[in-house]
Amino acid sequence: MEFRTEKKRSERMKRNDNGILLRTDQLTKSFGGLTAVCRLNLRVHRGEISCLIGPNGAGKTTVFNVVTGIYRPDGGDVLFNGESISGKKPHQIVSKGIARTFQNIRLFSNMTCLENIMAGQHCRASAGVWSSVFGTSRQKEEEKRIRDVAESRLRLVGLWKFKDEPAKNIAYGSQRMLEIARALATQPKLLVLDEPSSGLNDRETEDLIDFLKSVLKEDLTIFIIEHDMKVVMEISDWVTVMDEGRKIAEGTPEEIYNNPVVIEAYLGKEEFSEEEGSYDGPAPC
């Protein structure tokens, strides 16, 4: 197993409260009688790739949906850059700087690839009805800027050749990259990806990993839900493990990889359970 080792351990030690971009504080979300997320405290450090892992039904996507405003939390708080964003609408959260992709790709399928990405720039533009109808010079400038940003994003993911192709016509792997490019076009501080490697073959996954590492600049932080352990170990700086709505572990990939509790919860019981104290899932909420 390959671990992400670019960062020096000393650098990791510097993790403190100032470096936290996204934090959930006792976050709770339930659907009827089912508590999907239970008093979750989660940290995403600035400039890093953080992963959220856990078995199916652990509540990972629910966490993402609460963070991005699709669900309203039942309790607790979500702090982005120290500011509470819980209960805000998704489009308000996007303009604050959190962009997301979906587990099952959601593109604007009949619109061209370029238009899809231009849609990402929507929240960074302000032209109203009248300035658009009359095509004022400010609106034209803004439109040009939107196109330029969209073009650069489309070139970044290597899909410029498909710019006039309806999004539904391009290959599955390209659609995923397009969705990521669209999220990047909102000029986010935090990029939230829901299982970006699902449905991709090994080569596409490799490309995706390289791409995410290359895009990780000082002003961008990435937060991923991922199933593929190889991907998780390879790209993440920080891993949070959930099971049945609660956090059961967090740490560097090495720590998580060797954590018996995680192995038991995530990969099923192995010899660990007999040697050490048996783990029967997190305490009920």
């Binding site: 699709i70 998704p90 996007v94 009949n110 238009e115 231009m118 849609a119 990402g120 929507h122």
Partner: peptide
């Protein structure tokens, strides 16, 4: 474009910053 995005996929439109 925002109108067309809403027609194509409302959830994705909202998640891309369209009110």
């Amino acid at each position: 474009r925002a109108w067309n995005c809403i027609r194509e996929d409302e959830v994705a439109a909202e998640a891309n910053g369209i009110d």
